[in-house]
Design a protein around this nucleic acid. Sequence first.
DNA 1: ACCTGAACACCGTTCAAGT
DNA 2: ACCTGAACACCGTTCAAGT
Lengths: 232, 232
Amino acid sequence: MTKQFSTVWLREARPAKSTGRSRDEIVHAAVELLDADGLDGLSMRRLGAKLSAGATSIYWYVANKEELLELVYDEIWGELRLPEPTAETWRVTASAFAHDMRRVILRHPWSASLIGRLPALGPNALGAADTLRRSFHLAGFEGLEIDYANTTLTSYVFGITIPEVAWAQKVAETAYPDESIRETVALLAADYPDLASRMNEVHNSDVDSVREIAFSFGLDAVLDGLSARLVA
Amino acid sequence: MTKQFSTVWLREARPAKSTGRSRDEIVHAAVELLDADGLDGLSMRRLGAKLSAGATSIYWYVANKEELLELVYDEIWGELRLPEPTAETWRVTASAFAHDMRRVILRHPWSASLIGRLPALGPNALGAADTLRRSFHLAGFEGLEIDYANTTLTSYVFGITIPEVAWAQKVAETAYPDESIRETVALLAADYPDLASRMNEVHNSDVDSVREIAFSFGLDAVLDGLSARLVA
DNA sequence: ACCTGAACACCGTTCAAGT
DNA sequence: ACCTGAACACCGTTCAAGT
């Protein structure tokens, strides 16, 4: 019933000069499917077809779909552009990571469903984690507190961005979202006048900028809180 | 292609004296399946069978599986036990929510996959949100900042707990996780001596308490950061 | 070494038909 | 009003067989 701990990253990639398809080719095709049609758009059959291959030939490169997802997930981490920790203050580096991660997730909405479900053990994820850790170390954190600080920051970013994506998708697929959603929430929140009235403070046209403001508000709070841990 | 914004919560529940099955009955059966076998354990066919009903009779009560998941998701929110905001300081209330939410998610690991994917518009979710909002209002936050504070807190809790669940499940299903995982991470993090050495600071037996400490560390940071927003 | 196709054991959902 | 069963269009994965 239990098995070895396994991950794609322990599976050797096929040598580059191999005659067959490459892992890169497969991953890129998969990302294209995901960007175009979301998580449901990626099936082993569709991916096979896209590569003009039999549906099951992918299993030569990957043990199962989970491993394929590990590969595409690491692509997300690869899109981050972080500064060298030594070149900036820790707040700048942390803040760059936060905004960049959010941007990348919003650009690849399917990634939101992968975060936390899959271990982030790919080279890009490890590289980003290392950059953050070095930055927090330079800030003055020591030992396990480096990891705690790291976890605090990434948790906040993931926790705020994941629902943001889901909501955006739901909005995107509903007709006349402005009236439709406002009306729905008003009905459901009838018992909570506070909540209902708050809805009306935000005009739907502002919704994106309110999200940005909310993100920055929380990020500043998190960074201030970490800062406080530093002087203590 | 686009449709109305829809949610189960706008669908009237069948009257209690109805001759058929009740929504409650269905939801409880679904939660039992989920607790026993996780998200993959819940299929419309299996749920039908558990209710000694045809596989498709559930569609009388619910438009689709998504709506069923909305129902079970709200059960999670219903397990929270929050204090009356007026009875405690906002830090106590916020902290109670944070620890309680984490506990509930860890107890129902399948819920981690639902968070952020589904709108939280059920009565229990709205009730909890209202409690938090009132507490932040009493603390001194005004207008949209009440929501920002609320979002910051819940984002942190979700963001740290979701990966925790996934990791715990992965550990649970691997044989000899201690050696197995340590060895794997050591191999993959070979290029990052920092990361690798950190692994060895934590003995695997401590892993649960380290998680608790990490959670509290971040929570304190978040609460301090919100506090700072209050005096500014 | 790499790929195929058939087959297995599943899914969610629709819909006509039953009571 | 409530439930059924057959059918449709899919899944991920295994495996013997091909080149």
